[in-house]
Design a protein around this nucleic acid. Sequence first.
DNA 1: TATTGCGGTGGAAGCGCTTCCATGTATGGG
DNA 2: CCCATACATGGAAGCGCTTCCACCGCAATA
Lengths: 327, 327
Amino acid sequence: MTGERTATLDDVARAAGVSRATASRVVTGQGPASPRARDRVTAAVAALGYVPDASARALVTRTGTRLAIAVIGHTAAVLDDPYVGRVLISAAHVAAEREVGVSLHWLPLDDPGSLARLADGRGLGGLVVVNPTRPALESVPRTLRGRVAAVGVGARHVPSFDVDNRAGTDGVVRHLVRTGRHRIAMVTGPAWLPCCDRAVDAYRRVLRDSGAEPRIVHGDFTAARGAEAATEIMARWPDTDAVFALSDLTALGVLDGLHALGVRVPGDVAVAGFDDIAFAGLSRPALTTTTHPVEDIAAAAAQAVLDRRDTSGATFYPSALVVRDSA
Amino acid sequence: MTGERTATLDDVARAAGVSRATASRVVTGQGPASPRARDRVTAAVAALGYVPDASARALVTRTGTRLAIAVIGHTAAVLDDPYVGRVLISAAHVAAEREVGVSLHWLPLDDPGSLARLADGRGLGGLVVVNPTRPALESVPRTLRGRVAAVGVGARHVPSFDVDNRAGTDGVVRHLVRTGRHRIAMVTGPAWLPCCDRAVDAYRRVLRDSGAEPRIVHGDFTAARGAEAATEIMARWPDTDAVFALSDLTALGVLDGLHALGVRVPGDVAVAGFDDIAFAGLSRPALTTTTHPVEDIAAAAAQAVLDRRDTSGATFYPSALVVRDSA
DNA sequence: TATTGCGGTGGAAGCGCTTCCATGTATGGG
DNA sequence: CCCATACATGGAAGCGCTTCCACCGCAATA
């Protein structure tokens, strides 16, 4: 099996009785090759267990071989949320299928140049930006045009993939209204994340339809912040009868904060989240939420980048309402 | 900044007025170089924004540049558990710091040859095996000796890094005993995972000391299985007054199953988990558990591999008891 | 039959880098 | 003052691969 020395394309060519050029054509599938040559090379490849050397190939094709995943706005809390892990797993999976390496980069929020620097190096096959901000996205050099995609909606000129959080939010908030809630507060994400805007917009719209005033508090997608937010909301608008958080983790925190306040859920206040993480069904009361197909989204972004598909514009993935006990 | 063509070592050498050989020596830090040459090359590198081409370097040094992370025994449920995500994030972080790419591989449990095949290709700088099984670990070719590490304890001849689940389990079960529980059941991990053995062993030992019979049920680290296990346990040993699960996710499932059975926690039955995931503090009742420094462990494994450190033997990381409400 | 066109093929160049080796150039001891 | 020693340096080879280009033989056309 594993000989002393791994077989090279030369070995294959020699074994197949053709030139290295022909062997290369057959192996890559590019360029003409007679059926006879094709068969012989294929056989030789199998016999020798030939595996092309990615470095050598990358060197000559100048086709970067690494998929960089950049997470913008990194804080330690990011690790608690399954979100980044799921994005990473899914993107890495796509990359692995194509024998492409992955590198992960945590980028600070306040240094947009860091993305540009990251993209500077060669050997970069593509870039997936998680939590895209407009300045960051605009800082990536146009050399990479067509090889960048975002998970989450950011700037216009980079293809981005995200859950349809406008529709998702609409669904959740309408469900709240339908079940008799009218004084609904919302805990959004951090202000710098453009993709929250659409959700906030949807929330505002539904409330306007039902003639209610928006009650918005900013969050950061952590549970701790959710607990705080619950306290803030109940202090500021004591008659609140529902809280919608743009993240399940935050919603779970809201549940916790409300419990500490002695508020009953869903009796006094209904709570709904967003993401449908594994734990949403495990909380007491089980969390009503709406799905977030993170894996699909991340895979799509990775594929777009790896295929050099220049699909600018945003693609939205549907979110489905999951009604449990909390709302 | 980003010129039309990225600078090559030749450009640097020319700008510095030295030969490419000298430039290479300075850049890599290998081999002799006069202070003068060193300065001039360093300046040229900075001026031109030179970044070495990883592919070209890898091609000639034959030093693989990819860190492969193989997760053995893949099922869809793996994605629900934050565990793999955290391992991956941490290992990828270490790899990124050293400018090494990462590739992720899901391997089926029943095909030990797959690991060998994975390791066959060139360009592989190292291999981190998650959920190591003995046969899998023994199937990796000795060519990679010193470049393989395991997250979780498996075979002897590969350095492995894991939480000290013997001590962790001991701590949790003793806590249970200390708080008056004596009919303690345990939900372990899947039978094929060798690293569970130590935990089961510790559990048995504590029970023997307190003169109780072990009550062991196999799990698979999922919440769904936890709920099932709770039902099984209460049916088989109705007088059970505590359940210890080797995974928080499972413990959360146990909580759920017990709730469905109308059993009060911790009134009737105490429940404890293992891992201290972010949600452990958010369940109702909040889960008593013991910590699992996944990030440290994964980083250590990645470092060992990338440094070609041949530290065979197992390294254990301490686990700390976290007492909350459920036990 | 002579000419064109074309698919298949091999020779050879070269991607950017490291490293062996031979060639200087200063240094110390004899 | 000369030679051995060390160190610094540049030339050149070569890692494994893709791809340009020239070439060859064949079938189709004039």
